[in-house]
């Protein structure tokens, strides 16, 4: 009996002396595998135009119906995307999304991909419905287009602007605040 008791104590002591496996989460993060499917990113072309043309194929392909797209016609003088059509509203319910990546498969212009960002917690449920501003790749000198019809201009949420998929995953602690 004592051998077993001592054996148990030895195991716990050995554990105590070994390095903890804890990752100090917001400050340090595990490296994300290159093909991980995290929060979506809406991409732009090199000239700043949005790749998304508001075709709703992502919404059609979505098995859970978490994508809402409302398209509108481009103003030829100030186009948002190349061609006639762009997404005036683009919303993804990140809580309902199952991150299957079908939207990226369906996208004819490779406008939407699933990025490396996996930490999606928030204090407000409403903020987990990502708007187009949240999902869109940031762009220096980007001038947001007029707010979508029937919807007030959303408050800027620059801290949620997604990094590009190739950017390093380590971020500052304020990123997740």
């Amino acid at each position: 009996m004592f051998r077993e008791l001592i054996g148990g104590l030895r195991i716990t002591m050995r554990n105590m002396l070994s390095k903890p496996v804890t990752i100090q989460y917001p400050e340090e993060q595990r490296p994300v595998p290159p093909r991980a499917r995290g929060r979506h990113i809406l991409h732009r072309y090199d000239n700043g135009l949005e790749k998304c043309i508001g075709c709703e194929l992502c919404a059609g392909a979505c098995p859970v119906g978490c994508i809402y797209v409302l398209a509108a016609a481009n103003d030829p003088a100030h186009p948002v995307s190349p061609g006639e059509r762009y997404a005036a509203r683009y919303e993804i319910n990140l809580v309902r999304c199952i991150y299957c990546g079908y939207c990226a498969e369906a996208c004819p212009t490779e406008a939407i991909t699933l990025g490396p960002r996996l930490d999606l917690a928030d204090y407000k449920r409403e903020r987990l419905v990502a708007t187009k501003e949240d999902l869109l790749e940031s762009w220096p000198g980007f001038r947001p287009t007029a707010a979508a019809p029937g919807r007030p201009d959303p408050a800027p949420r620059s801290e949620l602007a997604a990094p590009s998929p190739t950017a390093p995953v380590a971020r500052s602690a304020t990123d997740t605040a």
């Binding site: 508001g54 075709c55 059609g60 006639e84 059509r85 004819p108 212009t109």
Partner: peptide, 9 residues
């Protein structure tokens, strides 16, 4: 044009 065409679908 199918992605931007109103008839698509």
């Amino acid at each position: 044009d199918c992605p931007v065409c109103d008839r698509g679908g």
